[in-house]
Design a protein around this nucleic acid. Sequence first.
DNA 1: GTCATTTCTTGATGTACATCAATGTATAGA
DNA 2: TCTATACATTGATGTACATCAAGAAATGAC
Lengths: 157, 157
Amino acid sequence: MKKINVKKGTVLQRKGDINSKVYLVESGLLRSYIIDEKGKEHIYMFGPENWLVTDNCESDIPCQLYIDAIEDTTINVASKEELLKEGPDLNALLRRLNTMQNRIIMLMSSNAKKRYEHFISTYPNITQRVPLKMVASYLGITPEALSRVRNELSQQK
Amino acid sequence: MKKINVKKGTVLQRKGDINSKVYLVESGLLRSYIIDEKGKEHIYMFGPENWLVTDNCESDIPCQLYIDAIEDTTINVASKEELLKEGPDLNALLRRLNTMQNRIIMLMSSNAKKRYEHFISTYPNITQRVPLKMVASYLGITPEALSRVRNELSQQK
DNA sequence: GTCATTTCTTGATGTACATCAATGTATAGA
DNA sequence: TCTATACATTGATGTACATCAAGAAATGAC
């Protein structure tokens, strides 16, 4: 477990890297994402304070996610083997599973407006910290669509 | 850990149930799903032989998934506490995380055709065992759309 | 503080998939 | 084996969101 500081914009991991690490965010903000065959980014996860960011792949195969820093960030880095040896935090794992389950259900059953509402209730403090287009990318919609959803929501009040 | 046999159609768990269990499928086929506010089913997961089916929620809060049997099924049932005590299978947990990550990425970045192709490569033997409409529900598209995708794919050859 | 670049918004148009409806085809129960 | 019910297919139409384009606003570099 090694503590490092990275500047905004630093790429910690690229698709295809072997032996991808686990990043525990102490302060700042990371994101993990894929780039599809059209060159479009899809954000898989934001990693604010206390979040664990990693590619959930075996450590000896090429990973599929890019991970970079959206803000200047302080991280604790560990290898997966290391974490497995010292016995991982089971409750954290279960919480992670729950978060992913909710995300899948949201993606399957919600329209743009409900996805956004779900997002701001799950990550209330992140909305201000990341550009709208990244939120859109996380939700699986375009920036234009999200802009219109926001408009609609603010007019309702 | 108790072994039980259930008939096709048996509902093992309903939304709102407390203390949801973990079901390890020995033979047969389970599915877990939600019903949205329009009454539409969205299949979260299929559980064929050797799969673990459960709602990833804490055991003392109402669960959100329905779980039922698509075929006559033999299952080993355990409480979550029980499993946690005896030390869960870490590799299985990690594989589960990987599966969910792939599902999320698929839902965010793929159209109907690619979702279906991804599905048949992931679950090649399940396609024959479940009605098309359930596959569609798992993919997040309508039965009509899946029917047309299939048509298109078979004409290409 | 100025200029360049990125981000956000708004409008016009396009498209993938949903919905609705009708018909055909399996499946299951008596 | 017959009938009822669930399931699958096909066509016509609708709609949510994508794409494209242009201008406005914010952000960052020097």
